[in-house]
């Protein structure tokens, strides 16, 4: 297979990304594939089992100091996203960028973006688009957070 990885500029400390699933759906093939894409693009990916609770996702994002949280949703679990966004905010993780991938109807996408989700990746999106998008969000997250501690 021809390997045509997208060219993403990474610092010596690669983006840290949490790839997870919330809610009751256990179909994690998609999130696993995306996790592999991100790893193969040079990122550090913290992968979880599906069925995470919102409090668990927040705790993982906090402890692992991730730049991006990616949530895979195939069967309406994305409706929990506003709750996750609020919980991240409350935990002081407003710099963390959150993306959703999977099946999200157009009307719901508007709702997610309004809740603070950075981007929704729909079916058919290419690997490079995901990798480049996540890398760009990670860079933004880091820039935003580095302001907190003057160095």
């Amino acid at each position: 297979m021809e390997r045509n990885m997208s060219e993403v500029q990474l610092s010596s400390f690669p983006p840290r990304v949490l790839v997870t699933k919330i809610g009751f759906d256990g179909h994690d093939r998609g999130s696993r594939i995306v996790a592999s894409f991100l790893r193969d693009a040079g990122m550090e990916v913290i992968e979880t089992a599906p069925w995470q609770e919102i409090s668990q996702v927040v705790r993982l994002a906090l402890e692992e100091d991730v730049d991006v949280v990616g949530v895979s949703s195939l069967s309406a679990d994305h409706l929990l996203m506003p709750k996750l966004m609020a919980a991240l905010q409350e935990a002081g993780l407003s710099h963390v960028k959150v993306v959703v991938g999977g099946i999200v109807p157009d009307d719901d996408e508007v709702m997610l973006l309004n809740a603070g989700v950075a981007q929704v990746f729909h079916p058919g999106v290419g690997r490079d688009e995901i990798v480049e998008g996540v890398a760009a969000f990670a860079a933004q997250a880091r820039e935003q957070r580095n302001g907190e501690l003057v160095t």
Partner: peptide, 26 residues
């Protein structure tokens, strides 16, 4: 090759995510 990593150890340490006495970092 890529420098990337899948950090999955803590999948098996999931009993402690609600416990403030335990802090896990990959």
């Amino acid at each position: 090759v890529s420098g990337g990593a899948l950090l999955g150890d803590r999948i098996r340490m999931n009993d402690h995510t609600d416990d403030d006495g335990v802090f896990i970092r990959s």
